[in-house]
Structure formats: structure tokens, C-alpha cells
Design a protein around this nucleic acid. Sequence first.
DNA 1: TGTACATCAGTGAACGCGCGTTCACTGATGTAC
DNA 2: TGTACATCAGTGAACGCGCGTTCACTGATGTAC
Lengths: 224, 224
Amino acid sequence: MAETGTGTGAGTTPRERYRAQVRTEIKERAWEQIAAAGASALSLNAIAKQMGMSGPALYRYFGSRDDLITALIRDAYRSLADAVRAAAGSGADLPALAHTLRGWALADPQRYFLVYGTPVPGYHAPDDITAIASEIMAAMLDTFVDLPAHGGPETPFEAHLGDHRAWAADHPAPNAVLHRALSFWTRLHGVLSLELAGHFTGMTFDPALLFDAELNSLIQPDLG
Amino acid sequence: MAETGTGTGAGTTPRERYRAQVRTEIKERAWEQIAAAGASALSLNAIAKQMGMSGPALYRYFGSRDDLITALIRDAYRSLADAVRAAAGSGADLPALAHTLRGWALADPQRYFLVYGTPVPGYHAPDDITAIASEIMAAMLDTFVDLPAHGGPETPFEAHLGDHRAWAADHPAPNAVLHRALSFWTRLHGVLSLELAGHFTGMTFDPALLFDAELNSLIQPDLG
DNA sequence: TGTACATCAGTGAACGCGCGTTCACTGATGTAC
DNA sequence: TGTACATCAGTGAACGCGCGTTCACTGATGTAC
């Protein structure tokens, strides 16, 4: 049936370039639909109509609706991984990494929720996507790895981490640093997702300042 | 058209009791469907079939599919508000309140996500639901209000809160306490929602311990 | 450079499906006298 | 206690709809000789 995937290979014929271009446009229209009405409202026929072609034509590019959605999820993870990796790779410090994350989230809230939002019961992401998820964690850890150790006795969770740090196998950071990286992730996600979901709307404060305050709690825990 | 709502009034006739009972069963089946396949898969006809009645019969109880979903969202908020209020009202301390929250979330993850998950673009909750949301915040603040002040200079966000604390109008707590209440909310939501969405699955640590560590960061900020 | 053939993007008709919702109706339950 | 009437839960047929997906096809683009 339909050959549906093409990498970003270099030796591209005109036809391959065309295919890639149409695939890209399909995904762009899909993102517009998701931004407008949520991922569950995504419709292949509507995308086709919007592109001025018939519904079945899309099956040249994606094997099914599920395939398309999976591709979108993969792109979302990929985009986040690239953003985080770029920040970490260029030697960004924690605040820079945090603001990269926030910028990426605000740029397209529904894309953020496709990664971190309500899970669809029964959906299992393919392996290559979970691999990108690990990549994101690894890139974050890169930013923490040079961090000066923070005094204080080992906490229960840090002790527990001692037996459960396979996910950070490549990083020789002490347990306390792994813990801080996890807190970085969960705390920033906490503020961000509540902000994006509109839960601060009634209160009038500036979410950016709360975000920075949470960020600060990770840098100077004693002023928490 | 269909009289669709009945309060929890006391002077109930048998007919009213029957109505309330059927409404309740419809919602129970709806929750089952949501737990199985997510809120977007909810189908009136499927619920009717499951209850052994015809599709149109449901319109005696809910004006439309949207009405049913709104009722479910309202019930979710109501349930959370009751849980938090019960904890706060019985003089629970921060850890007890936090564990109440976690228990409520784990009891039905999809219900949690109906409150805090991916928002549907364009959906605006009716006023009575946002009122319950305020109630939740108020009950949380009740637990913080007696908290001993924490030394240290005022942070930028706390200063900012000075101008934006109308949402806490009933609570004379200092800005620093409001800030801590907000952090309580965002941090616990951060860990919880990542846990419920399965983002810790690959890593093998116990989410409950990370949750407790985050909780601890709110109680003894100096131990980070 | 031209011809013969293979590839493949896109079309249009058709499929079955389940959805939400309306409508006119039947029959049981409750109420008034 | 019995009769006449009103209420109202639930039915079954029917509506239009848009969905995902299949299939046999046309016609343009690319390839081989």
C-alpha cells in the first residue's frame, strides 16, 4: 500500500521533495484544526477540503487518521527536544532553559498539551517517541550536571533514587542533582500547564512572575 | 421542553427520586466511558444502550450531549471542592491536605483531567463552575491562613501579589502566604499530572516519594 | 530526440457506520374530585 | 373507593450529517532504451 514515510534524507528527487512538502502542509492544516477545536476534532476530510483536494488523496501521505496524529505527536516531542537540546547544548543556565521551555509552550499551547496534556486511555506511544522523551530528560540533565552540590543530608527521595536512576544512566550526577532536575521539570510544568489551561484567568496576577518565582525556588531553595 | 435539572432538594416525590436516580446512573455510565476511552469518546447512544433503553430517552434527563458533559465537569469540581473543604474544615495540616488531593486524583485520573487537563479551545465553563473553582482555592487558603510567617525579604512576585489579591479577598493572609498557597497548588499539580499521565513510567522511582518530596519543599523550603 | 513503459498523485463514487437530535406516539404513574 | 384527567418516562422511526476508508480509474511525471 501507500509508502507513507520519507525521512529527511538529502538525496531527494523532485517527487520526493513534493511529497515532503505536501506532508508538511497536511500537518500544518492539522495543527490549525487542533488549535481551533482540540485534537479530538481533527478530521482528514476537513483537511483535504481545506487544501483543495479530495479526502482519499490524503491516504497517499498518511496511512490513517491515527498515523497522522502519531506523526503530530512525534513532531511535538521532536520540536521540544530540539528546543531543549539547543538551549542545553549552547551552555544555557537554568533560567535560560526554563524560559526556553516556557517560550516553547506559549508558542503553541495545544502542542504542549499533545505532549503533557490529558492522556487518551489505551493509547501507547510508539518506541521512537518514548526515545525522544528520554532525549528531553537527558538534555535537561546536561544543564544540571555541572551544578555545585547543595549541602544538607540526603532526603528519603534521594536515597530512593539511588536504586532507581537507570533513566539517568549517562549522567554521573549525584542523587540530589537528579532530584533537582525532576523538581525543575515538575514545578515548571505545574505552573505552565495551569497557566495554559486558563486556571489563573480569574486571578489577575502575571503568570510570568509566578513562573519566575518557581524557577527561583529551584535556584535558591532557601528563599523558596 | 425537558425539565432537566433537579437540585438535591429534600421534599422529593417518588417520581423526583426516580429521576435523580436515573440521572445518576447516566452519569455513572458516562464516567465509565470516559475512563475507558476519554471524554471525547463519550456517546449518548452508547450510554442508553448500556442502560437498556433507547437513545432519545436520555433527552428526558439531559438537554444535549454538551449538557451532560458540563454536568460531569461540574460534578468533578464539586467533588474536589468537597474533598478539599472537608480536609481544610477538619483542621487538616498541609500534608493531610496534600494527601487528600493526591488520593482524590488517583481515585479517578480522568476526572482529575476533566478539571486540570487539556482545555477544549473555545469552551467556557459556566459561572457556577468557576464559582466552585474559587471555592477550592478558598478552602486551600484556609489551611494556610494560620501558618507562621516565614522570614526573609519580600520577593518580586509577592510584591506583585500585593496589587493582585482580589481572588483572596476573604483571607487576610500576607502576600508571602498567598504565594506559598499558589506554589502548593502548582507544585503538587505538576507532580500529580505528570504521574497520572504516565510520564514517570519509564523511570522506576515511586511517584509517591517524589510527591512527598515536593510537599516537603513547601513545608521546609530550606531543605529544597 | 523520440517512443514505450512504469510509477504514482489525485479523483469520484461508494461503503457502512454511529452520531446527535426531532417527532408523534403509547402506556404507566400520579392527582383531583 | 372509583372514575376522569394530566403528567411524563420511554419507544421507534426517521432526519441529515460527516466521518474514515476502499476501490477502480485517469492523467501527469519520470525512466529506460
